[in-house]
Design a protein around this nucleic acid. Sequence first.
RNA 1: GCUGGGGUAGCUCAAUUGGCAGAGCAUCGCAUUUGUAAUGCGAAUGUUGAAGGUUCAAUUCCUUUCCCCAGCUCCA
Length: 571
Amino acid sequence: MDLSTLRHSTSHIMAQAVKALWPDVKLGIGPSIEDGFYYDFEKSEPFEPQDLEKIEEKMHEIISADYKFERSEMKKEEAIKLFKKTNEKYKIELINEIPGETVSIYKNGKFIDLCRGPHIDSTGQVKSFKLLSIAGAYWHGIETNPMFQRIYGTAFETEGDLENYLNLMEEARKRDHRVLGKQLEYFSFHEEIGAGLVLYHPKGAMLRYIIEDFIRKEHLKRGYQLVVGPHIMKSDIWIKSGHFGYYKENMYVFKIEGQDYAIKPMNCPGHILVYKSKTRSYRDLPLKYFELGTVYRNEKSGVLHGLLRVRGFTQDDAHIFCLREQAEEEIIKVIDFVMDTLNVFGFEDFSVELSTRPAKSIGNDEDWDAAHHALSNALKKKYLRYSVNEGDGAFYGPKIDIKLKDALKREWQCATIQCDFALPERFGLTYVGEDGKEYRPIMLHRVILGSLERFTGALLEHFGGALPLWLAPTQAVIIPVSEKSLSYAKKVEKALTENGCRTELDYRNERLQKKIRDHEIEKVPYMLIVGEKEAADGSLSVRSKAQGEMGRVMMDDFIQMVKKEIQEKVK
RNA sequence: GCUGGGGUAGCUCAAUUGGCAGAGCAUCGCAUUUGUAAUGCGAAUGUUGAAGGUUCAAUUCCUUUCCCCAGCUCCA
């Protein structure tokens, strides 16, 4: 049996149950989705969580009655009459949107629904389902439309499959970066600081430092130059860049001595002014400016989500100023940079999207076309499969988004490459060509990791908190067997720290088993147990997160082993 | 921002129809000196997110506000 058909049919059964319990409810749509289904209802009184049980009970009755799903086709006018009788105004709206003369109707028991199908034969074929949650959803997904109440559920062929799915969801919740972040003391959020503003704790700050250090060096290797700009800039520059016209709702603005300022939501203007600070030759291009730029954006409160969507974040941002002819090649280099980086961090699965010109945008059509072609050609040359996201580009240019998938197949947009003809025009950027005449360069805006916040969140989820050695804030915990071995443990700590290994000493007066358990939960890569035996010959008993007990190893050998393991990862 | 659900000790959660706010973990103290996933005993811990209101009495009811969660809309 096809799961999506089963789920879609289950959504009809749910709608049938809802109509039986609350006859005044108006039906929206009820499709199957990945992992389940939903149905949208317009109802004056909101559903309460307990209502889900009532609906489930009614659904069981419908399933027991084993109603047939009967399909019929009819002329649109006929269908409209039918739904007028039942007062389903949204169904009539839908019929009018469907092309062609006829529509199909499905009937199970007394319940009638506009539906393309297909469906299962009868309601009795549904063996296991569960209603999961209630949420609001705009009709047709448009913010200004009335809000419906959506009930989410899922269905499987067997109880066992359903149980597996629910267990998987439970596992996913455990590796939620927000849970791990708190449990492993990486970061926190505070009411008194404000929504969407991150406080990094020592472990989170160390992880961030490691990522920053890595990505900065990678940029230098690839010919980028470091620049640094301020966090606030006068509004004038944002008016000039167009941000005030297209992005103002997302910006924090304020006054200093009567002058208008804004906290930067993007880093481009600073980089543009560095470019503009002197006359540029075609020989200088491409020029690549890189900045770990901290930006603040006034994201709507409802969209904030742990580290994955925040109001203050740091981008690994760079702007490449180049000739038009260089654009494609530079885009390819950036794509390679992204792929190499994702590979180092252990992400193997990603998807690529190309976003085109949005309704609100600056620049002329030819330039947008040229930018689009540069991006799509680069993708084709890299043999990357991509989908097109119409109208989803930045206001100054089209873009490639690379969304990476975590271990649970959830997608996070991190890297993006934007091709921009408009800002160089607005700021009057030029370079002197071979013939001594002035020309307009183009600009590529790009991030590799996206933001350190989002990337860190994705990393934590991807590894379920068990970071690989080179990223782990604490690489090894030294555990003395008893206080008798504390002085040797301190010697080990000193030696490892001096050799660049990030260590912690667990000096608590607890039993060995307890300490091992605690650090197992902390997911530390190595535990080094030291007792009288180890102290006698300068060794360590190594317990690895990945391999379990590794036996006695001489201290120097362990140091070499760790260095080698890190080198192999980060070449 | 919108719809709905929440906020109780550092963390995870209890607390009948409004009637003295509790437990486990963590913390601290004492004992124990431990060899690969939880040693025992004891102690301390709260403006119940905040402000206002109703009431003899509010964690519980009402209003406002902040923050969190799910989804929608929007994004790195």
